[in-house]
Amino acid sequence: MEAQRSGEDGRIPADWLYSRKMRWLIFLGLAMVASFALLWAWQTVAALVEGRFEYLWFYLPAFLSMAAVSVPGLEVIRSRMRTRARVGSCELRPEGTAITANRLHALLLRSYLLLGTVACLAFSVGMFTGVYTFPMTASQESLFPFLVGALGVCCGGYVVLLATGRLRNPLIVCTPTELRVRRGIETQSIEWDRIAGLEATSLREYQRNSAIRISPANPDALTIDRHYRGPFSGVLKSPPAIVAKADQFEVGAVPLYWFLRYYLEHPDDRRELADGRAVGRLLRGELVS
């Protein structure tokens, strides 16, 4: 199977050039988030100065949550633009070579969800009890506490699902015989020899994620381990192919693409995935064509 190359840089898959150029959209979104963080920071200071300490249950978590949510966007851009694997982004485990998601993103995810839960519930309870007063119309006062409270419940539920392992951070594990890709709700596994194709593609979400699509030779080639047991689990369908959002991984989207392609096309070298040589080759940049 032929690798996708761009005329601009032979290392960059052609379908990823647009997402790399449009990274300014993420910067624009981050600027909007940062403006809200500054607003809540200002309100936090004002509440402290004016002695309105009960408002800190809303303002302070809202500020910290908005500040924390900005970091994953920056990490996505860095992973999307990286052409050399980052040290510490992959490791040898007993089952094979593991490529982990961005650790800082994984840490902050629970933090800003938990802070968001506190802020939303504090706002909702404060409005219902009359402790909080904001310049709103009568219809807004009757509607916003329900909407913000529902958002807080959703954030809290997400935290519980992460804490109990029903939702998990992305992970790719490569063994000499199979490839395993874990996403939030499930882990998909496929034997290397049953992969029909591997291509770089762009997903039309989050400013076109740089993604890697791994197509099975036949539908029964995929093995699925569903670890999500929560609301709507019965209606969630597994995709017919493995799709990994490459810019969620700390190693970098481009190094990850060439790493997977190399071991797909070189079956005799797959034993390196079990003895640590694959990790060394990835970190030294030997596999980026």
Rank of each mutant, 00 (worst) to 15 (best):
Pro170Val: 05
Asp15Ile: 15
Gln140Met: 15
Gly280Trp: 12
Leu64Trp: 12
Arg78Met: 10
Ala221Cys: 03
Asp275Pro: 06
Ser6Glu: 13
Val181Thr: 04
Thr117Tyr: 02
Ala85Phe: 03
Leu92Lys: 04
Phe146His: 03
Ala14Asp: 13
Ala3Ile: 10
Arg168Tyr: 02
Leu179Pro: 00
Arg166Ile: 00
Val71Pro: 08
Ser142Trp: 07
Lys237Ala: 07
Ile77Tyr: 07
Tyr262Ile: 03
Val76Ala: 10
Leu114Phe: 10
Ala150Asp: 01
Arg82Tyr: 07
Ser79Lys: 10
Asp193Asn: 06
Gly156Leu: 00
Gly126Trp: 04
Ser238Gln: 06
Val288Cys: 15
Cys90Ile: 11
Thr117Asp: 06
Tyr55Asn: 10
Thr137Ala: 05
Phe259Gln: 04
Trp258Pro: 06
Cys155Pro: 03
Ala14Tyr: 11
Ile190Pro: 04
Ser142Val: 09
Cys120Trp: 01
Tyr158Met: 02
Leu179Trp: 01
Leu264Gln: 04
Cys154Arg: 09
Gly88Cys: 09
Ala106Ser: 14
Leu60Lys: 14
Met32Gln: 14
Ala46Tyr: 13
Ile224Arg: 01
Ser79Asn: 11
Ser79Asp: 09
Trp40Leu: 15
Thr223Leu: 02
Phe249Tyr: 08
Arg194Leu: 02
Pro94Arg: 05
Ala41Ser: 12
Arg11Tyr: 13
